[in-house]
């Protein structure tokens, strides 16, 4: 049986959630949980809805904070989908927390080093490895953009709860995913394609994955890893997921230019783009960034087009 950690977590975190619009301490009775569902596969992403639109255009228009992290390591591990089962996953590339592996917990991640330029961002970010001619491409870096969701009042946004786990994109997709969720582009450009475009040598390939920005206020994870999160729509979160959290767009930049025909993801093909996030930020620092940047509607940083390779 897998953990049901989040069940307990929600009990304790409920006190925090109740300060906001969250529904308080509902669903805290483990005896009511159907443990047979704990090993259910990752749910279809459609249960989370889709964003109204993706973020495009110049940065600097609206509030955001940005964390850039260098590549940390690659492992066939996935502490969300295959906890304590090293080697069970397709190959992932990890950023941020340098200790992330199949056994990772919030506790184990808390004291680890980070590859991020925000030293208090010790969160774990990962994505399937990109292969070129079946060899792994070591990414240049990742960029995590934390913004209000489209048209969401920035002053209402709460930080991700400690220990939140979420997945965006569909590792089993057989058709193009919405580019508002998974997109490929070159450098910091405006292009948003469902498969990798041919990029110039100075504006190399990036995959962007946008996570849901509404939380149910209770669970740091749920069986299937989707149902506790939802995308906002019309600038609002649904009643089922009433807590607006930052819209995290996570991008991975690769030293890849030119013909993309020799590329594939380790999750299969090029339509299976996805990414995972495990919140092990220094929680006070994350809270501070949300308050000082998003609530105050301030651009706290950008990814400069002068720096991307």
């Amino acid at each position: 049986m897998r953990r049901w950690s989040s069940v307990l977590a929600l009990v304790l975190i409920a006190g925090c959630a109740s300060a906001g619009p969250g529904p308080g301490s509902a669903a805290t009775d483990m005896s009511t949980m159907d443990m047979s569902t704990m090993d259910m596969p990752v749910q279809e992403p459609s249960v989370m809805g889709v964003p109204d639109r993706g973020f495009v255009g110049p940065q600097g228009r609206s509030a955001q904070f940005v964390v850039e992290c260098t590549f940390s390591h690659a492992l066939p591990d996935d502490p969300i989908v295959y906890p304590n089962e090293p080697g069970q996953s397709h190959l992932h590339v990890f950023f941020g927390n340098a200790d992330t592996d199949a056994d990772s917990t919030v506790e184990s991640l808390a004291g680890a080093a980070t590859t991020c330029d925000q030293p208090l961002d010790r969160a774990s970010y990962w994505a399937p490895a990109l292969l070129q001619n079946r060899r792994m491409v070591e990414p240049i870096k990742s960029t995590a953009y934390y913004r209000p969701g489209p048209d969401v009042d920035p002053t209402t946004i709460e930080p991700f709860p400690a220990g939140l786990m979420m997945i965006a994109g569909d590792a089993h997709a057989t058709e193009s995913q919405p580019t508002s969720v998974v997109a490929w582009t070159c450098g910091t450009g405006a292009e948003r394609d469902s498969t990798p475009p041919s990029c110039g040598v100075d504006r190399t390939l990036r995959m962007l994955v946008t996570f849901p920005d509404c939380w149910d206020g209770e669970h740091v994870d749920l069986p299937g890893h989707r149902a506790h999160m939802h995308y906002s729509s019309g600038g609002a979160c649904p009643a089922s997921h009433p807590v607006p959290v930052p819209q995290l767009t996570f991008s991975v930049q690769y030293p890849v230019s030119g013909d993309p025909s020799d590329l594939e993801l380790t999750s299969g093909g090029l339509l299976t783009g996805h990414a995972d996030f495990f919140n092990s930020w220094d929680q006070a620092a994350l809270t501070q960034e949300v308050q000082l940047c998003l609530h105050r509607n301030v651009v706290c940083g950008i990814t400069s087009g002068r720096k991307t390779g």
């Binding site: 304790l12 925090c16 917990t105 506790e107 929680q283």
Partner: peptide, 29 residues
């Protein structure tokens, strides 16, 4: 569930509580 998982969950919860202890501005410091 492994023991380690549970410990992690407790830690997550503790961090979560700690994070919401402050008001709008007091957490800034």
């Amino acid at each position: 569930m492994t023991t380690r998982r549970w410990v992690g969950v407790l830690m997550a919860a503790a961090l979560g509580l700690a994070a919401c202890g402050g008001g709008d501005d007091s957490t800034s410091s």
